[in-house]
Amino acid sequence: MELLGLYNYWIVVFLMMAGFYVVIARGNLVKKIVGLNLFQTSVFILYISMGKVEGGTAPIVEKGITVYSNPLPHVLILTAIVVGVATTALGLALVVRIKEAYGTVEEDEIHRQDESL
């Protein structure tokens, strides 16, 4: 029972590793970016899980409520989500540019073209 309190973190580690695997093992650049986002969202869940307090409510001040969940991770992750979408947009723009220059978005084909130059 004691270990059940770690279930959230284990799922986070699993999701993180799924994203990590996609990033390092798959050759398609769009899929790599999806993997990066997978990884990113798992980190968000890690932070928000840590900030949850048993019996607490959303951190909006209200009369009669004494226990709130931790607002600080929420703030940090709010910033991180928006920064995340900015990096995703930049990455996807790079992918489109690579497609224009090489005619493919598969990593091994790009390498082959570079070597044959």
Binding site: V30, T41, F44, A58, P59, S69, T88
Partner: peptide, 26 residues
């Protein structure tokens, strides 16, 4: 997990904008 602000940002930005950007790239 009580993070209402994060929740609607993720729904709008993560599920909305990111998906649209990726579809555009596809």
């Amino acid at each position: 997990l009580d993070a209402v602000d994060v929740s609607f940002t993720e729904a709008a930005v993560g599920a909305g904008i990111s998906t649209v950007l990726m579809l555009g790239t596809l």
